[in-house]
Structure formats: C-alpha cells, structure tokens
C-alpha cells in the first residue's frame, strides 16, 4: 500500500491505496464519488473523464498514485456554489443533451475542458473534441448543441436540423 494525497473538488484527501488501484476505482470505491462512471474500462468511451490539474483524462487509464499532489475535479465538483447546475450542466438539460445519462458526466467534463482552451469552438471543433466520448442514445446532435449554447453561441440554426 502507498499513501496518496490529492485535492478532490477542493478538499484534501489522503488514503492508502494499492499500486494497481485506478484513479476511477479510488474515486468511486474508496471515496464513493460515483458520479464518475466506468463505461468500457478500455479507454475508449470517456464516461470516466475527470480533470487532473485542469486537463481532461480518462480516470480508468491512470493509477491513483499517479495523481499524488494533483488537483482532481469530478462531476460532483461542477455545480455552482449554491448547488444549482452550472452553465454547461444547465445547457445539457435545456438542449436535451442526455437521455440515459450514463455518458453525461464524462461529456460535461470533456466539454468543460474544451471551452477552457477554446471558448468559442465551431460545431466541427466540438465534434472533433468529442472523439473520445461515446454516447449511444443521443446521436450527439443535442450534446453538440448544448456545448455550443454553453459557449454563448446562438444555436437556433442547429435546432432546425
């Protein structure tokens, strides 16, 4: 066992973990932060996407000990301080960017990382960015629309499709 200490959603957390403990297992099983989902467990689907030091990563393909000293943000840390949905989360609700909801935490984390680097992406850039996040319900249209809306762009033209 190795002791790891990291900041998760603003709170410092220390635990003993085994070398092979994945970051996603640490979040879900040790800390009960079950908002981060395991979809494929083979780094294809992106349901487990979280932010480590501000960068999106697949938490099923990173060990917990590799996040030693890091700032980790999960879907549980995304809401506004008063508990209301943040701009991205609200946009997903407003534009029906989710159906079963399984991929949604990863989608929101990935989309948030995109807007941090590229505040006004084109539709093509949004679609390209989501290559590593798979959704089997929506057909992506409404997810893309939600992300463009969250970036403050007019999505009425896309709504006509």
């Amino acid at each position: 066992m190795t002791k790891v200490t990291m900041t998760i959603n603003g709170k410092s957390v220390s635990r003993d973990v085994e070398g092979q403990t994945l970051l996603v297992s640490f979040l879900r099983d040790d800390l009960h932060l079950t908002g981060t989902h395991v979809g494929c467990d083979t780094s294809q689907c992106g349901a487990c996407t979280v932010h480590v030091d501000g960068k999106s990563v697949k938490s099923c393909t990173m060990f917990a000990v590799e996040a030693e000293g890091a700032e980790v943000k999960t879907i549980e840390g995304m809401a506004n301080a008063d508990g209301s949905l943040n701009v991205m989360q609200q946009a997903f609700q407003d534009h029906h960017g989710l159906q079963c909801g399984y991929c949604t935490p990863g989608m929101v984390m990935s989309a948030t990382a995109l807007l941090k680097d590229n505040p006004k992406p084109t539709e093509a850039e949004v679609r390209k960015h989501l290559e590593g996040n798979i959704c089997r319900c929506t057909g992506y249209h409404n997810i893309v629309k939600a992300i463009l809306a969250a970036s403050g762009q007019d999505v009425s033209a896309i709504a006509a499709e």
Binding site: S43, G46, T49, V52, K55, S56, V57, K58, T61, M62, S110, A113, L114, H129, E131, G132, N133
Partner: peptide, 9 residues
C-alpha cells in the same frame, strides 16, 4: 493521436 484525454496522458 487518440483523443484529447489520451493526448493529455
């Protein structure tokens, strides 16, 4: 290479 999250690791 891969996708954005893969490129970050």
């Amino acid at each position: 290479i891969g996708d954005p999250a893969v490129r970050n690791r």
